[in-house]
């Protein structure tokens, strides 16, 4: 993340995202696939690292060997052509409201205090080893089991997270960069999906 100044001199925290160029690798149609969507490829990959079937898939569309392939639904898919290029300024403009979908940073095996914001136990009053303990996980003879969904320690992070209602504060067309106000899920250099929202959600 970094920050920029707006017209009035206010500092705006923002995330810099390389958003494009993306190439249309396939068009999904109602007749053939049962749904309408556009498949976009982003990034580049060396030829020897792409499997032969995928190479054929990209060649058919006349697109570059993409690192990431994702499908998007929306309007105007019927007019798109395989191999068509999308640059950041064709899709986004300053002031747009977007949602960003990404994979959050993996935190490994974490206790309940970090993972579920439990309060932990008392540090004093004769306690020992209770500081970050979860406490009771249920009643005893009835129900004689632990309910499903009981929050416990375990793997944290590394899951899909969506952040809605982020604002585009800048578009730099020549380097395909998008400036989004606030933070987005995932690590530096991670891959995210950006969806334009027509209304606030």
């Amino acid at each position: 993340m970094t920050s920029i100044f707006d017209e009035s001199g206010q500092v705006i925290p923002c995330t810099v995202i390389e958003a494009g160029p993306c190439y249309v690798t396939q068009i999904r149609t109602k007749e053939r696939d049962g749904y309408e969507a556009v498949q976009l490829g982003f990034g580049e990959k060396k030829e020897r690292l792409v499997s032969k079937p995928l190479r054929g898939h990209f060649a058919k569309a006349g697109a570059k060997l993409a690192r990431v392939v994702r499908e998007f639904r929306g309007n105007g898919i019927a007019e798109m052509q395989p191999g068509q290029e999308f640059t950041v300024d064709r899709v986004f403009a300053k002031g747009d409201v977007v949602k960003v979908v990404g994979t959050s940073k993996g935190r490994g095996f974490q206790g309940v205090v970090k993972r579920h914001h439990f309060g932990g136990g008392a540090r004093t009053h004769g306690q020992s080893d209770r500081m970050r303990a979860p406490g009771s996980i249920g009643s005893s003879s009835y129900p004689s089991r632990v309910f499903k969904g009981q929050r416990m320690a375990g793997r944290m992070g590394g899951t899909q997270i969506t952040v809605r209602n982020l604002t585009v504060v800048g578009v730099i067309a020549d380097s395909n960069l998008l400036l989004i106000k606030g933070s987005v899920p995932g690590a530096v250099n991670g891959v995210v999906e950006i969806h334009k929202l027509t209304t606030q959600q």
């Binding site: 970094t2 730099i172 960069l177």
Partner: peptide
């Protein structure tokens, strides 16, 4: 990371 510097350069 160079991308961030690119953006910052326009602001500094």
């Amino acid at each position: 990371m160079e991308k961030i510097k690119l953006v910052e350069a326009t602001q500094m």
